[in-house]
């Protein structure tokens, strides 16, 4: 099987800082990581490869630095890495991103063979849209299985796959045909560590690097800012609420404090007392 996994290098958002005065983003030194959701998809891809044989290709679109993430994916066990990088891609929204990635996947199919399954992450932690995967599926006309909790069965010969897909109130067991696009749910598997020999291989591996032109993209108007129907008009910090909390007086004894709090609460929100009495009675 040839399995393709789209991964994205993202800033570790836990470490993004906002300049408290100017409200601008301080990018200095914010480390980048592989989008955590993508790792569950990568692991699932490796499991299928280990089971059925074949190759796993990882693909990312991003700045040259994104090769770090590809190398990490190789160290985890992927067989091949492709970096799609071009300044024309800057400012891509989900539609332009899925276009560029799709073109690269077509080129990968021509060069290394068509993938039987394309995995993407459920969503990214920076864009957070969960739309790039469905976008790719639509453009490549792949059957789409998002929020997959488990791959129940895969039969590469019959070209069939059965998965459990999470829906709001339960789980759908779906059966569909390969090729398809899958996004895995977080926690659906445990991402492996990667063997020492993979780490050594990854450190030296050559990363296939394509510009837009290399990937066969002729129509630049579909890429980057130009190809993005959405436009970010402004970025701003959430405005503070006009007034701060009303402070309840403290007391030496906790029970007095509790009384103070409840009194204040019901004074300021008279309707609550009835509401609470009703809800409390329900239990």
């Amino acid at each position: 099987m040839h399995i393709l996994v789209c991964i994205k290098q993202v800033p570790d958002s836990a470490q993004i800082r906002i300049n408290p005065v100017t409200q601008t983003i301080m990018r200095q030194g914010v480390p980048t990581i592989i989008n955590p959701y993508d790792l569950f998809s990568l692991e699932e891809a490796l499991r299928l490869r280990d089971q059925f044989g074949g190759e796993v290709t990882v693909l990312t679109m991003g700045p040259p630095m994104a090769s770090d993430s590809l190398r990490k994916a190789l160290a985890i066990g992927a067989d091949r890495a492709v970096l799609l990088t071009d300044r024309f891609f800057a400012g891509s929204d989900t539609l332009a991103t899925s276009f560029a990635l799709t073109q690269a996947i077509v080129k990968i199919s021509e060069t290394f063979g068509a993938p039987d399954i394309v995995f993407t992450g459920k969503q990214t932690i920076d864009g957070d849209t969960a739309q790039v995967g469905p976008g790719i599926a639509k453009r490549l006309d792949l059957l789409q299985l998002t929020y997959v909790a488990k791959i129940v069965e895969c039969d590469p010969d019959k070209r069939e796959i059965i998965v459990e897909r999470r829906s709001e109130g339960g789980v759908h067991v779906l059966k569909t045909k390969l090729p398809c696009l899958i996004t895995m749910l977080e926690g659906s598997n445990e991402v492996r560590r990667g063997a020492m020999k993979d780490a050594l291989r990854a450190a030296r591996a050559e990363i296939v690097t394509w510009s837009a032109k290399d990937a066969g993209i002729a129509d630049m108007t579909k890429c980057g800012l130009k190809g993005s129907p959405t436009v970010v008009k402004k970025v701003f910090a959430p405005p503070p609420r006009s007034e701060r909390a009303f402070f309840v007086p403290t007391a030496d004894v906790a029970s007095q404090e509790a009384e103070n709090l409840i009194t204040t609460l019901f004074e300021r929100q008279p309707a609550l007392e009835q509401d609470l009495t009703t809800t409390a009675a329900g239990f």
Binding site: D93, T94, L95, S98, T129, A130, Q131, V132, G133, P134, G135, A137, K138, R139, Q144, T146, Y147, R165, R166, S167, E168, S228, P229, T230
Partner: peptide
């Protein structure tokens, strides 16, 4: 939701519009 997000991406891409 799992339904809305799954559907919205496909529809927007088909229509080539912003989402």
């Amino acid at each position: 939701t799992t339904l809305g997000r799954d559907l919205a991406g496909s529809v927007a891409t088909t229509l080539l519009t912003g989402l």
